[in-house]
C-alpha cells in the first residue's frame, strides 16, 4: 500500500466518520429561500432565532439572515444583494428609498437607545436631556467609546453629538469599529460611557459593571423598519420573497412574538411591536 492510497484511506475514513456522525442536513426543507440583510442587534439579541423558523413554517420561505451593521445592510439592499432589509438607521433608510430601488417601507418595532456608563457617573449626566448629557461628557473629558462602524447605533451617536454641538475628538473619545457586544466590553474595561441599544445591553448586562445612566429622551427612540427591495436594484432580487417577509413580520403572529420576546429571560420585553403605526406617532 503506497503512501497516497494510505492517505486516501485515512481521509476516506474521516469523511465516513463525518457522514455517520452528522444528522441529516438541518437546512430548511423549503425550496425557496430569500436573503434578509439585518443589523447585529436582531441577531445578537436572539430575536431572529425565534422569528425565522416561524416565518418559514407559515410562508414556506426559508430566510438567510445576514447580520451586519445597518450601513452594510442598506448597501446590500441598494446593490440588490438582499431581498429585504430589517434595519434601524432612519436617515440612511430614507436615502435608500430616494434612490427608487425599494418597495414598501413599514414600521416593525422599536425599543430605545440608552447611555450606559460607570455606576459612579463621573460626568454627572443622570438627570440631563440627552444632548446636554453628551455635551457634558465631552466637556468633562470623560471617556467615551464609539462603535465607529457606520451601524444604526453609530449613526444615532453622530446625530446626538451634532445635537450637542460637539465634534467628538481627543484622547477621551475612542472608536472600536466593532459590534455592540464587543464595544460594551471595551467601555466596561475602560470605565467609559457608550451608546447602546437597550436589547443588546439587557442581553449582556450580566457580565458588565456598566449601568444605564441616561435614557428616555425622545432623541433616543430606536425604530426598526422592514424595507422591500425591488428588481430595480438588481435582476436577481426576489420580490415575492420580499413581499412574503414584509407581510409576515407586520402580521399578528410575528408582532405577538416580538412583544413577548425576552420577557422570560430578561424580565422585560426587548422590543415593542409597532405594526400599523407611523414614526410620528412614536414621537420619532
Amino acid at each position: 500500500m503506497g503512501v497516497p492510497s494510505r492517505v486516501a484511506a485515512v481521509l476516506a475514513g474521516l469523511l465516513l466518520l463525518v457522514g455517520c456522525g452528522a444528522p441529516p442536513a438541518a437546512g430548511p426543507s423549503a425550496e425557496r429561500s430569500l436573503i434578509l440583510a439585518t443589523t447585529t442587534s436582531t441577531q445578537d439579541s436572539g430575536l431572529l432565532d425565534v422569528l425565522l423558523p416561524a416565518m418559514t413554517e407559515d410562508t414556506g420561505w426559508a430566510v438567510k439572515p445576514i447580520a451586519v451593521g445597518s450601513g452594510a445592510a442598506i448597501e446590500m439592499g441598494r446593490r440588490g444583494e438582499a431581498d429585504v432589509l430589517l434595519v434601524h438607521s432612519p436617515a440612511a433608510e430614507e436615502e435608500l428609498v430616494a434612490t427608487g430601488v425599494t418597495g414598501r417601507r413599514l414600521l416593525v418595532m422599536h425599543n430605545d437607545f440608552v447611555l450606559v456608563g460607570p455606576a459612579t457617573d463621573p460626568a454627572g449626566i443622570r438627570e440631563l436631556p440627552v444632548a446636554e448629557a453628551m455635551a457634558t461628557i465631552a466637556r468633562s473629558g470623560s471617556a467615551f467609546v464609539s462603535r465607529g462602524d457606520e451601524s444604526g447605533t453609530h449613526a444615532r451617536e453622530k446625530q446626538l453629538w451634532e445635537a450637542a454641538g460637539v465634534d467628538p475628538d481627543g484622547v477621551w473619545y475612542r472608536s472600536t469599529g466593532q459590534g455592540m457586544g464587543a464595544t460594551l466590553r471595551v467601555a466596561d474595561e475602560a470605565g467609559a460611557y457608550t451608546l447602546s441599544d437597550r436589547a443588546t445591553f439587557l442581553a449582556q448586562r450580566d457580565g458588565l459593571r456598566l449601568q444605564i445612566v441616561n435614557s428616555g429622551d425622545a432623541r433616543l427612540l430606536n425604530i426598526y423598519h422592514v424595507i422591500e427591495i425591488t428588481p430595480a436594484a438588481g435582476e436577481r432580487v426576489q420580490p415575492e420573497g420580499a413581499a412574503a417577509f414584509v407581510d409576515w413580520i407586520v402580521g399578528p403572529r410575528a408582532q405577538q412574538m416580538i412583544g413577548e420576546f425576552g420577557t422570560t429571560e430578561f424580565g422585560e420585553p426587548l422590543f415593542t411591536p409597532d405594526a400599523g403605526k407611523t414614526a410620528e406617532q412614536l414621537g420619532g
Binding site: 442536513a25 438541518a26 437546512g27 430548511p28 447585529t40 441577531q43 445578537d44 436572539g46 432565532d49 438567510k64 459590534g179 455592540m180 457586544g181 464587543a182 442581553a203 449582556q204 450580566d206 457580565g207
Partner: peptide, 18 residues
C-alpha cells in the same frame, strides 16, 4: 444556523452574544 455555521463563526457569534 444549520447551513453554513462552522466552529469558528459559531465561536465569534457566541462571543458577540456575551
Amino acid at each position: 444556523a444549520g447551513e453554513t455555521r462552522v466552529l469558528t463563526t459559531a465561536a465569534v457569534l457566541a462571543t458577540s452574544r456575551g
